[in-house]
Nucleic acid binder design. Structure first.
Lengths: 124, 124
DNA sequence: CAGAATCCAACTTGATACTG
DNA sequence: CAGTATCAAGTTGGATTCTG
């Protein structure tokens, strides 16, 4: 007997199109307003909080802090705190984070490279 | 004289990390809650409104309609309406949309394939 | 069938001020 | 420096109803 794609059973294969699949939960962390940009900013470069904030145009302290916490929970970002005064905290990507950043980065570069055509399609 | 990346001049190269770059504007359409999922659902398949809605778990009529309109404006989605009763409308991807879908799809597949490791990192 | 319109609830985000 | 706390404001999302 063949399994159908329409079987509601989870655990066959994750699918972001399925409402309650955990992959969509994680996808939301990567594709929300700041998640992907943080991954992008940290790819190939370890940064401190304020440097990261400067690099990502428009992000507030609150949102950056919140986004970093989420990405750290997902295992994408590594937070390294040195116990000195004044505080010194470094953020970098884990191997998992590098993987996500690679794919998000590819999407970003494609958008950047095709922006002209897209804006033309928009009639602007 | 060399141009520096830090030059505030626009039009050198689009950069999603820049606050007012239009590439970020478009990026938001692709990475908002339903944008990418619509691109994914339409890749390799033309669908009618209700079929599309069934395929994307959890999306409301309102949000689907709104998302489709945005993606159509960006030139990613093609809307084809047949003037019959009852109405018949088909949605498909433009070549531009296929490009975006390809990259978003790669990210989605990577997430799905690495979900187990991610959830392990989350301690769940 | 494919939506548009309306109303309202929930969530997100930002500004500002403050702390160890 | 690296955040947190608080509150205000904006945005998104859903349920429902309606229509050509």
């Amino acid at each position: 007997m063949k399994m159908l794609d329409t079987d509601k059973k989870e655990n066959l294969r994750p699918d972001v199109l399925s409402e309650h699949c955990q992959s969509r939960f994680v996808m939301n962390h990567v594709t929300n307003r700041w998640g992907g940009l943080v991954l992008l900013a940290l790819s190939e470069e370890t940064l401190r909080f304020s440097a990261l904030r400067r690099k990502i145009g428009g992000v507030s302290e609150r949102m950056l802090s919140q986004t970093l916490k989420t990405l750290e929970e997902d295992g994408f970002v590594l937070r390294k705190s040195y116990d000195v005064v004044p505080p010194h905290v470094e953020y970098s990507l884990t191997p998992l984070g590098e993987g996500a950043a690679k794919h998000f980065g590819a999407l970003a570069r494609w958008l950047e490279d095709n922006l002209e055509e897209i804006m033309k399609a928009r009639g602007e």
